[in-house]
Design a protein around this nucleic acid. Structure first.
Length: 370
RNA sequence: GGAGGGGUUCCCGAGUGGCCAAAGGGGGCAGACUGUAAAUCUGUUGUCUACGACUUCGAUGGUUCAAAUCCAUCUCCCUCCA
């Protein structure tokens, strides 16, 4: 179980196509994983996700722990059964909530004290707790409990945080009881400090795990910093293990990430922006609410094969958004997810043809010339 | 016919002598969103030859240094009573 088999390596870029085997099926990388924090990818039914080619989705330890409680999920037969998604699932550990809910928490060596954003109740989440909850949820891939440090942040703070994340990783591995059916991934931190990144990568990969993630990026830093960090990390990653860039990203970031050897991505961007009217297209970003689309009866993207683009006009989607109809959010989400999954398909073709760098060039140009 | 209430910027609706181009919503226009406190948030919304000027608060006329705000007439709407 949890074997990662690289089936092709791009001669031009070193980008890989691989197969990661899990109890709920094989994931072909590079892969984009839609995010379904609260045991649902907002606006989409599992069947619909499957139909657009989603291979694996994310869910979240912290949010499910608070509501409805991991006990209920476990009693219902695990997360797969609870939400009726029978392909692989990855759960994030709650480490991102240490960052995003920073107003409600206090970090200690033992773990993190949270005050619930829902009702203000106090909770304590240690690395052991995060693993215990994830064992109960039953995802195929579970994440180590880390701290996603903010950006910008002082060197000393990031160093301390990164080293604590390493100590927490050791505790996570010790606590993980279900290694046969759940793959624990470690998370490399270190902000945008190159030496801290290298230190984190060396220590993290020294611990034998089925996969490794790069965290703490796309938290506000310039893209050049993110790309540089990926370049710095690349020689320090384990070639035979999947590499997961957490929280990324936008179409251009995914292309840039794959070109730098990343295999897995997740991001709320396509689903979140879809709900507010921003759509990815082969010609760049479109805000469907713009007045110029009021009479536009063409499909959003002629190059897209999604249910929305095949059956509806831009004017119709704009109308749905203007009237705040639920279907608007659904069609937009449907499209954005299909767009990103299509993008990974095109990326795989480029890797197979050993022309990932050419593809990157073409992609950047096509999106800019809108 | 009698009594009362009211007509404010695209809409609703505050404002009752100067701090009012006029609160607040809505709508419109635009922007943001990267391991989801997000079907959310931000900006903007009379005109112009634009750090100043001009036009606006049902209409007209008047009082005043100064009116959306006071007075008169007209007009339209609403409620109650006959």
């Amino acid at each position: 179980m949890f074997e990662y088999k690289i089936t092709h390596e791009c001669k031009q870029s070193g980008a890989r196509i691989g197969e990661f085997t899990t109890p709920h099926g094989v994931i072909e990388t590079p892969v984009f994983m839609p995010v379904g924090t609260q045991a649902t990818v907002k606006a989409m039914a599992p069947e619909e996700l499957e139909n657009i080619g989603a291979q694996i989705i994310l869910s979240n330890t912290y949010h499910l722990y608070l509501r409805p409680g991991h006990g209920l999920v476990e009693r219902s037969g695990g997360l797969h059964r609870f939400m009726n998604w029978h392909k692989p699932i990855l759960t994030d550990s709650g480490g991102f909530q240490v960052f995003s809910l920073s107003k409600f928490r206090k970090i200690k060596e033992e773990g993190v004290e949270f005050q619930s954003h829902i009702d203000g109740s106090r909770h304590f989440l240690s690395p052991e707790d995060a693993i215990k909850v994830q064992n109960a949820l039953g995802a195929d891939i579970i994440m180590a409990f880390d701290e996603c440090a903010p950006w910008p942040a002082d060197y000393d703070y990031v160093k301390e945080s990164m080293q604590r994340t390493l100590r927490w990783l050791v505790r996570c591995k010790m606590a993980h009881k279900n290694t046969e059916r759940q793959a624990l991934f470690g998370i490399i931190q270190g902000g945008t400090y190159d030496d801290l990144r290298v230190e984190s990568a060396q220590h993290t990969t020294a611990i034998d795990l089925p996969g490794y993630a790069i965290g703490g990026l796309s938290v506000g830093e310039p893209k050049e910093d993110m790309y540089r960090t990926l370049d710095i990390l690349r020689p320090h990653l384990v070639k035979e293990k999947p590499r997961y860039l957490m929280g990324v990203g936008s179409p251009d970031c995914i292309v840039e990430g794959v070109a730098r050897g990343v295999d897995m991505f997740d991001c709320v961007l396509p689903t979140r922006t879809a709900r507010t009217g921003t759509l990815f297209t082969s010609k760049g970003k479109v805000n469907i609410l713009n007045a110029k689309y009021v009479d536009d009866l063409d499909p959003l993207d002629k190059d897209c094969d999604c249910y929305y683009c095949k059956n509806y006009s831009r004017a119709y989607l704009r109308h749905l958004f203007k009237t705040k109809e639920i279907l608007g959010a659904r069609l937009a989400t449907w499209h954005n997810l299909r767009y990103l999954i299509n993008l990974t398909e095109r990326i795989k073709e480029a890797i197979r043809a050993d022309r990932m760098l050419d593809f990157r060039e073409e992609f950047i140009n096509s999106v800019e010339n809108s």
